[in-house]
Computed example of a mutant assay.
Amino acid sequence: MLFVASRSEYSRCPAISISRRWFDQKSQITGLVQGVGFRVAFERSARSYGLSGWVRNRCDGSVEALVSGDSDAIKKIIDWARQGPEGAVVKQILIEDADLTTLRPGQFLRLPTE
């Protein structure tokens, strides 16, 4: 299932109202999100929320992230990603359910550009 969350539409995004307590979610963040420290800041924030997963730049200029954890922590990282670090201009976040089975709980990686 794919959800689109622009700044104005985010509050109505059904991904945030999922009742499951633990799940995996993949996001693609577009806008001015490369060259502003987005991946490093995303990784720090995700770790501080106790999430597992990875983040990477995409060749198309977006940032992609896969996170796994408590639904409240997932909501927090998506809320954070709406603004990103200083200098970022987030235009849209595409969100879809995912399956993260290859990482240990608490492991968060910054992957190379794909």
Results as ranks from 00 to 15, higher is better:
28 Q>T: 11
30 T>D: 13
22 W>S: 13
19 S>D: 14
13 C>I: 04
20 R>L: 12
41 A>K: 14
37 G>R: 05
39 R>C: 00
29 I>W: 10
18 I>Q: 13
17 S>G: 08
15 A>R: 03
27 S>F: 05
29 I>S: 09
13 C>V: 08
16 I>Y: 01
36 V>C: 12
13 C>Y: 06
30 T>H: 09
34 Q>K: 01
26 K>V: 04
38 F>K: 08
15 A>L: 02
26 K>E: 13
31 G>T: 00
28 Q>F: 06
14 P>G: 02
37 G>P: 09
27 S>M: 14
15 A>I: 05
17 S>F: 10
39 R>A: 03
24 D>K: 02
24 D>T: 00
23 F>Q: 15
13 C>H: 04
33 V>M: 11
39 R>M: 06
39 R>V: 00
29 I>Y: 06
18 I>E: 07
36 V>R: 07
25 Q>N: 12
42 F>H: 00
18 I>P: 03
16 I>K: 09
40 V>P: 05
31 G>H: 10
38 F>M: 02
33 V>G: 07
23 F>W: 15
38 F>C: 08
35 G>M: 09
32 L>C: 13
16 I>D: 06
27 S>C: 14
13 C>P: 02
14 P>A: 08
14 P>W: 01
27 S>T: 02
14 P>H: 05
32 L>G: 01
23 F>T: 15
25 Q>R: 12
32 L>T: 02
30 T>K: 03
22 W>D: 10
39 R>E: 00
23 F>I: 11
20 R>K: 11
18 I>D: 13
14 P>V: 00
23 F>K: 12
23 F>N: 04
37 G>Y: 00
35 G>T: 00
15 A>K: 07
18 I>S: 02
18 I>W: 03
18 I>R: 02
23 F>Y: 15
37 G>K: 08
24 D>A: 06
28 Q>E: 15
13 C>W: 08
20 R>E: 15
22 W>A: 12
24 D>W: 09
40 V>Q: 13
22 W>L: 12
31 G>A: 04
29 I>H: 02
36 V>F: 08
40 V>L: 14
41 A>S: 13
42 F>R: 02
26 K>Q: 13
18 I>A: 13
38 F>G: 01
23 F>R: 15
19 S>N: 11
33 V>P: 01
24 D>H: 14
13 C>R: 01
29 I>Q: 00
32 L>W: 10
36 V>H: 04
17 S>A: 14
23 F>M: 14
